[in-house]
Every structure is written in structure tokens, then in C-alpha cells.
């Protein structure tokens, strides 16, 4: 087989492998549907094919071939729109929605992964052309691992500590420690909340953490992840069991209230720690001089 063809095929294979590797389904269960996987793998193959062709085409002095890459970028923006639309529609019938920020984050990740596939294929074909097929494979795998490491993002664990809080009522107000959560009028539900509910307090580690947790989208993401991981007893017509997060305006700490399926405090705390920090919520006031001097 012609060496150029071999290199192009290698680029496609490594790129597709990268896409499949990045498609691992985790607890967020998205995209867990077989058709969702088919959509993403197919687009991954296309991305890999386009990028694999670029370098060999340049070597053949086919300079216009590079314009195909811009076409790809156009296509992958569509993926973001597709993901956003699908998830927003699913949101309407969700008891504890993800929130727009979380959806935007997920959509962005899906778009970015296709660019990572293209980058992997580009690196693989360039190295393979230069140093041989084996070197190309190694370079491709290294690129996948490096990009996954760089794209792993941060978690609530990095910006805050979570401690158990005392769930109690002050007349009709449900409180976690000294933070008001909501007003509950039904006595039966008050008893149920005290019996089955869990209250924890999220303490931001510094002003960056405080700014991030101040974002309502980030709070909704935490509530969504907690509800998925430990379950919740919220039901249509029983809004008293809605999981909520409320802030102590003076200190910036947040109280979280949830009625999980099993009353397991450790699992709730771990679920909060594992929630990703959303890109749209990531503010870093401490990186500015004003933020730094305001913090002390």
C-alpha cells in the first residue's frame, strides 16, 4: 500500500480511537443512548479523516486542502448547538434540572472533543510522515493522554470544604445551622424533612471559591449531581422536598438541603465534591489586584 495512504488510515484510526476513549459514559449518563454514541463516533471519524488528510495534502502542494479544516470547524459548531438543544429539551421534564450553565458546559465539551480528535490526527500524521508509522502511533496516544489531562477541569473539592450541618426548624423556616432554606407550611412535611433530610454546609476555601459558588448555575449543577448520585424524594405535587442551596450573605458559605433516597451523609458530601466547576461560573477575583486587596 502507498505510504501516504497508510499514514492517512493511521491518522483516522488514532483519531477515532481518541473520540471513543473520550466518550466514556460516567454517572452523568450522557450520552448513554446507543444512537447518541453513533452520532458522536461518526462525527469523530469525519473529524479524524479531515485532519489526517491535511498534512499529506500539504506535502503534495495541495494548499487549498487546508481550507477543508475551516469547513470542519463550522460543522462542529453545529454539534454544540445540537447538544444544547437536546439537553435543553430534556430539561423541561426533569425534576432537578441541570441548569443552562451546566448544559452550555457539556455542549462546549462535545465541540471541543472533536477539535482534540483533529489535533490528535494532525499530530499522528505529521509524526508518521516524519519518523515512521510506529512513532506516529506513540505520538497519537501521547497527545490523547496529554489533552485528557489538560481538559479534565476542576471540581468543587478544589475550591471548597463540605461539613455536616444541623437541619432544624425555626417556627416554619427550615434552616441548616444558621442559614434559612425555605418556609414549609405543612406539618407532615416538616416531620418528614427532619426524619429523612440531610443538611450540609459548603465552605468556600477563598474568595475565588466564594465567587464560583455564588453563581446560580454552579449551585444548580451541584444540586443536579447530588440528586443523580444519591437520589431524591422530590415528586410532582410535593415541592417541599425540593433540594435547595442557599447562601449566608455575610460569610459566603452555602447550605445545601436534600432529601435523598438513602440517608447517607458521606455520599452526599462526596457527590458535592465530585461536581465539576463550570467554565461559565469560574471567576477568579484573586487574580486581580483589586480582588486581592478586597479579600483581606
Amino acid at each position: 500500500m502507498d505510504k501516504t495512504i497508510q499514514i492517512i488510515i493511521l491518522g483516522i484510526i488514532v483519531g477515532t480511537a481518541a473520540r471513543i476513549y473520550m466518550l466514556r459514559t460516567d454517572y452523568r449518563q450522557y450520552p448513554s443512548y446507543p444512537h447518541g454514541i453513533v452520532v458522536h463516533v461518526s462525527l469523530g471519524v469525519l473529524a479524524a479523516a479531515l485532519a489526517s488528510l491535511a498534512i499529506p495534502a500539504l506535502m503534495e502542494k495541495e494548499y487549498t486542502a487546508i481550507t477543508f479544516l475551516s469547513l470542519a470547524a463550522q460543522q462542529f459548531r453545529e454539534i454544540r448547538n445540537m447538544e444544547r438543544e437536546t439537553l435543553s429539551k430534556l430539561e423541561e421534564l426533569s425534576l432537578v434540572p441541570r441548569g443552562l450553565d451546566y448544559i452550555e458546559g457539556i455542549a462546549k465539551v462535545f465541540e471541543a472533543r472533536n477539535y482534540l480528535v483533529m489535533f490528535t490526527s494532525l499530530v499522528t500524521t505529521s509524526v508518521a510522515l516524519w519518523l515512521g508509522l510506529l512513532a506516529g502511533i506513540i505520538a497519537g496516544i501521547t497527545t490523547i493522554l496529554i489533552s485528557m489531562y489538560l481538559m479534565r477541569g476542576r471540581f468543587v473539592r478544589d475550591i471548597a470544604t463540605v461539613k455536616p450541618g444541623k437541619l432544624h426548624f425555626e417556627n416554619s423556616l427550615l434552616m441548616v445551622d444558621d442559614i434559612v432554606i425555605m418556609n414549609v407550611g405543612l406539618e407532615d412535611q416538616r416531620e418528614k424533612i427532619l426524619k429523612d433530610g440531610i443538611g450540609v454546609v459548603v465552605h468556600p476555601k477563598n474568595d475565588n471559591g466564594r465567587a464560583i459558588l455564588n453563581n446560580l448555575g454552579q449551585r444548580q449543577a451541584i444540586l443536579h449531581d447530588v440528586s443523580i448520585l444519591v437520589g431524591n424524594k422530590l415528586e410532582v405535587g410535593e415541592p417541599d422536598l425540593t433540594p435547595l442551596m442557599r447562601k449566608d450573605v455575610d460569610t459566603g458559605k452555602l447550605a445545601l438541603f436534600v432529601v435523598p433516597n438513602e440517608k447517607d451523609l458521606e455520599c452526599v458530601i462526596e457527590a458535592i465534591y465530585r461536581t465539576p466547576i463550570l467554565e461559565s461560573a469560574a471567576y477568579y477575583p484573586l487574580k486581580s489586584t483589586i480582588g486581592k486587596s478586597a479579600a483581606d
Binding site: N183, V184, G185, L186, Q189, G237, E238, P239, T242
Partner: peptide, 28 residues
């Protein structure tokens, strides 16, 4: 309390206690 539970279910609304003997039903 009984009326509030029934209305809560029917209206899919939450009962809030104004602590003066008045209960309101609000859908959030």
C-alpha cells in the same frame, strides 16, 4: 393542614406558613 395538603396536591403548589394563622399556596 388537611386542606393545605389537598390543595398542594391539586395545584402542585407549595404551602407556606405566614405564622399568623394564614397559609398561602404558591407554585414556584
Amino acid at each position: 393542614q388537611r386542606t393545605c395538603i389537598l390543595l398542594s396536591r391539586v395545584l402542585k403548589a407549595m404551602t407556606h406558613d405566614l405564622e399568623n394563622g394564614v397559609y398561602i399556596l404558591v407554585r414556584h
